[in-house]
Simulated assay, not measured.
Amino acid sequence: MLNRFAKELIENWRLGLVASTNADGTPNLSPKGTFVVHDDTTIGFADLRSPGTVENISERPVIEVNFVDQLTRQGVRLRGQARIVSPDMPEFAKLKKPYIAGWPDLADMINAIVLIDLSEVKPICTPAYDAGAECDALRQSWMERIRDINIKHSVSEAGEC
């Protein structure tokens, strides 16, 4: 189900925007930066600081995740059933290994692994391509924009996290 483009996108960018549904039916959108491709039909992220998302998933497990290459404006929209694998479950220790390898400084903060069994994978592509934009030109343009933003912010006050 996941093609090479989708796998490389997730592995290179890691940041996925997870959409779950709150109890009152309103959307909950939360960025997660620890995504791992487990196989062709399963991705996951480490629950580090995700109480709202995890609570939503435990009650309403259908979620959507978007990944976008910020430079080319291409991406994937993934939909599936999420499930929470907690530390007391037998599969947790094995599943945790790629998260520890990728983010060793965060290993002690992992509360659970959220696995998503994918049911749908769709491409995301900016309308700029419909107007004749080319991938390399978009990449170059956005790299210049990022450089300009970095220069601008290096001389201003840094925001707090």
Score class of each variant (00 low, 15 high):
residue 3 N to F: 02
residue 4 R to Y: 02
residue 6 A to I: 03
residue 10 I to A: 02
residue 11 E to R: 07
residue 11 E to L: 09
residue 12 N to H: 02
residue 12 N to R: 07
residue 13 W to C: 10
residue 15 L to S: 10
residue 16 G to T: 09
residue 17 L to H: 10
residue 17 L to E: 07
residue 18 V to S: 12
residue 19 A to H: 06
residue 23 A to F: 13
residue 25 G to Q: 13
residue 26 T to S: 15
residue 26 T to G: 07
residue 26 T to V: 08
residue 26 T to D: 05
residue 29 L to R: 07
residue 30 S to A: 15
residue 30 S to W: 02
residue 31 P to F: 11
residue 34 T to L: 13
residue 35 F to R: 08
residue 35 F to N: 09
residue 35 F to T: 02
residue 37 V to Y: 04
residue 38 H to N: 05
residue 43 I to C: 00
residue 44 G to I: 01
residue 45 F to W: 10
residue 45 F to E: 01
residue 47 D to L: 01
residue 48 L to E: 04
residue 50 S to A: 12
residue 56 N to E: 00
residue 58 S to G: 10
residue 59 E to C: 05
residue 59 E to P: 00
residue 61 P to Y: 02
residue 62 V to I: 09
residue 63 I to L: 12
residue 63 I to V: 15
residue 69 D to R: 04
residue 70 Q to N: 09
residue 70 Q to P: 03
residue 71 L to S: 12
residue 71 L to R: 13
residue 72 T to H: 01
residue 73 R to D: 01
residue 73 R to H: 05
residue 75 G to V: 01
residue 75 G to S: 04
residue 77 R to Q: 03
residue 77 R to M: 00
residue 77 R to W: 02
residue 79 R to F: 00
residue 80 G to N: 04
residue 90 P to E: 13
residue 90 P to F: 06
residue 91 E to W: 01
residue 93 A to N: 11
residue 94 K to Y: 08
residue 95 L to H: 09
residue 96 K to P: 05
residue 99 Y to K: 11
residue 99 Y to G: 10
residue 101 A to Q: 15
residue 102 G to F: 09
residue 106 L to Y: 14
residue 107 A to C: 13
residue 114 V to F: 06
residue 115 L to C: 03
residue 115 L to M: 04
residue 116 I to V: 14
residue 116 I to Y: 02
residue 116 I to C: 04
residue 117 D to M: 04
residue 118 L to Q: 02
residue 118 L to P: 02
residue 119 S to V: 07
residue 119 S to R: 05
residue 121 V to L: 00
residue 122 K to N: 06
residue 123 P to D: 01
residue 125 C to P: 00
residue 127 P to Q: 03
residue 128 A to S: 10
residue 130 D to R: 04
residue 132 G to I: 08
residue 133 A to M: 04
residue 134 E to C: 10
residue 136 D to H: 10
residue 139 R to N: 07
residue 140 Q to H: 13
residue 140 Q to Y: 06
residue 143 M to L: 12
residue 146 I to N: 06
residue 146 I to K: 06
residue 147 R to E: 11
residue 147 R to F: 09
residue 150 N to Q: 13
residue 151 I to M: 05
residue 152 K to M: 06
residue 154 S to G: 03
residue 158 A to I: 12
residue 158 A to N: 12
residue 159 G to Q: 11
residue 160 E to D: 14
residue 161 C to Q: 12
